[in-house]
Design a protein around this nucleic acid. Structure first.
Lengths: 253, 253
DNA sequence: GTGTCTTTTTGATCCAGGTCAATTCGAGTC
DNA sequence: GACTCGAATTGACCTGGATCAAAAAGACAC
């Protein structure tokens, strides 16, 4: 594969997606407790500053990468929110996840040197570009980065196991409850309120992740509202009874 | 079926899981075109012989590892067949995959230093033990092993994406067709007939992977049989019309 | 072999969630 | 403000797959 810096530069001239010089480096990034630097030493994080040297801005609705694109880099969400999406051939899409700040995108591309899904921004967003060749080189140099990167991949596998459990053996109510509890935790981990947030995705996108139709998702929001579990008005959600939601999410049929 | 190893015979009477000295090393293993050695040079594969130094035999129904067990090793299926299973708390299980010869088990354990699912043998099976600490050490030494291991993890992520697509957006018929096509390919890759094989898993286990009840799976087998797509008698399956199955699997609602 | 236990098949019935359709809401834009 | 267009809500109805039930077929231990 060509020199990564060149290939990224070339992409910068394309419309839609812009490359900006990285102002905030990993060592001073406010996401360093969530993102790639987790668990690394001071000097290791400083070496990341050299590895993660560029960012891409992606406008709402545009793609960070698409299935079939040549794989060169991983991405860490710096701000905003993405969805990953698989196209099932005939217009049938499946959302495989939503990624928020500090979460990694593109791991699926390593196996076949091409991305296996689309990553679409749900709002205007920024992602840090991590050239994969460099990451490999660095992870051979720094043992804990090496180890940490394996953990990141492994956790993605575990996360997907969770989605499979949800898709394969939960009822609609349980699915949505589990989804809301998960979102709440992730907002909390980023210092936002776990009880009140704005959804970045549509009912249809939530439904796609959960294996439900958008009408069903909408009805469930209304039902949860009526049952005093949440207050939902459009994309604005307030969780009133997290314990109740948790019980719903964990309960058997 | 995969080659019997005479040395195991003596140990067969010992309880449940036995550790046996590895007679067949990676460099002479008949799975080296499928397993960890793929794409490695002669000498790199010889170094694997040092890494993969033991095997475990697991009797049908027993576990290779269980969710919560401390994570120390990865495993490569040497012979037989496993399922990975997630327990959803209250007796509700979800099968997350079936693994056959040459496929890797335990990748989910790296992230949290504990296994996140159970790996259960569907028949008397053997797995090569790959101590993770050693794998890390070796992969820092051998660039292509390093790279290859990342690919293995990434492909597992992609495989799970596929299961999510299946669970989230296919109808029952399409799910089972996709499952049979996948099995057929995997048997073919191992030198077995792609058209005639014996299922190692029950209808219930297939149903769990596909998000269906066992009665539905059974009815679908009967329907496929009636439609001339397959001949199914119990666990023995013959595919008569692979093209037809493929079309079913890829078709929209 | 005989008996026991698990798995599979098949039928009858039911209901959770899908489908179709009609408003209503809300974020942009001019 | 008024207009537009996608997103969300809600109702009415339908259906694919679940559930319940019972019998048949294997698999395995003794």
């Amino acid at each position: 594969m060509a020199n990564p810096s060149q290939s990224i530069e070339a992409e910068a001239s394309r419309p839609i997606i812009n490359l900006v010089a990285l102002k905030t480096v990993c060592s001073s990034c406010n996401l360093r407790e969530l993102c790639l630097p987790v668990g690394l030493s001071r000097e290791e994080i400083e070496s990341l500053d050299e590895l993660v040297y560029a960012r891409k801005t992606v406008r709402r609705g545009d793609s960070l990468f698409r299935a079939g694109d040549a794989f060169r880099s991983l991405y860490a969400v710096r701000s905003g929110c993405f969805k990953t999406r698989l196209s099932g051939g005939d217009g049938r899409d499946q959302v495989t996840g939503f990624q928020m700040a500090g979460e990694m995108l593109g791991l699926d591309g390593i196996g076949a040197d091409r991305h296996a899904c689309d990553a679409v921004a749900l709002e205007d967003s920024e992602a840090c570009v991590i050239p994969y060749a460099k990451l490999e080189e660095f992870s051979r140099r720094f043992e804990s980065l090496h180890r940490h990167f394996h953990k990141v991949m492994s956790r993605e596998i575990v996360r997907e196991h969770g989605v499979m459990l949800l898709l394969g053996s939960m009822r609609a109510e349980e699915k949505l409850a589990a989804f809301l509890v998960d979102l709440s935790q992730r907002f909390a981990a980023r210092g936002f309120s776990p009880a009140e947030f704005v959804l970045r995705m549509t009912r249809g996108e939530i439904g796609s992740l959960l294996g439900l139709k958008l009408e069903t998702v909408s009805r469930l929001f209304s039902r949860f509202h009526a049952n005093g579990l949440i207050v939902a008005r459009g994309k604005r959600v307030r969780i009133l009874d997290l314990v109740g939601l948790r019980q719903l999410a964990g309960r058997s049929s």
